[in-house]
Design a protein around this nucleic acid. Sequence first.
DNA 1: GCTGAAAAGCGGCTGGC
DNA 2: GCCAGCCGCTTTTCAGC
Lengths: 164, 164
Amino acid sequence: MANRIDEIDATILELLQERGRMKRSAVAEVVGLSVSAVSERMRKLEDRGVLESYHAVVDPKRLHFDITAIIRVSVDGSEHYPAFVEQASSMDEVLELHSITGDGSHVMKVRTKNTTTLERFLSRVQGISGVSSTSTSIVLSTFKETRALPTEPMDLFEYDEDDA
Amino acid sequence: MANRIDEIDATILELLQERGRMKRSAVAEVVGLSVSAVSERMRKLEDRGVLESYHAVVDPKRLHFDITAIIRVSVDGSEHYPAFVEQASSMDEVLELHSITGDGSHVMKVRTKNTTTLERFLSRVQGISGVSSTSTSIVLSTFKETRALPTEPMDLFEYDEDDA
DNA sequence: GCTGAAAAGCGGCTGGC
DNA sequence: GCCAGCCGCTTTTCAGC
């Protein structure tokens, strides 16, 4: 029942979080196993849902996405939440959307090209029904931005996909 | 001087943001070019710094990272900023660190395993010199979490790496 | 900047431990 | 769970347009 991430799995996860297109042969060399052993471990990590996905990251500045903002949104009445979440999630500018404790009901991370497009975006958000206020913080500098989690040997437990 | 992302480059970026380990041959099939043409475009996008990196994403829940928090930090006196940024960036729990406008001087996205580890993390942050207050919002649900930017044909301009 | 072909490298599979 | 070997597929390189 309780599956396990051992030292080697932890290293594989670390390598792939850092270099998502790393070749199996290169991984094998680092961890000191054969390519087929690494392949099987990667396949199992994917099957178990530990390795969730792989993505390329594009440099926002090169594509002229010069504004990053953290926006707190207050949605009044939880009956408005589902429609708000659906509409906000579908907007390309919204990179992250979470419901939170504390001031406001939701927080979003947003990227747009400039202040004009940000302003238009904010208007659209404020137009969603239930949204009573927004509070925008513009990002001045980004010092760290990753999704990499620290990995160490540990037990895993079965986990129902539908809960995710 | 002004380089360009055409329709095909935009499609390649879109595909790779979505599926970071997609094979060149599969990309070639979608965009209707030969494998070598796609390879060369990918290489150039990497060289130009548009394709910045590739990463695997690990499911935090499977690794028992059950707490995500957005923490606003007030660092008093900008002379404390560099040391704060350096120390905070080096913490594994910190996935994102930005300086911002508005309340507080910085905001962090943090993942920890449970409330106990979150509490210990907050103590450490509050112990960094210059930190006068923190305000923590716990994430209840995450509805969207990506770094994918919308891609469309556009001109690129030269860009000094050192500015990044 | 693209194609197509040849050579090299990689990944999936099987059998054995 | 791991390894080695085989074989098909993918990637790289290069000549030619």
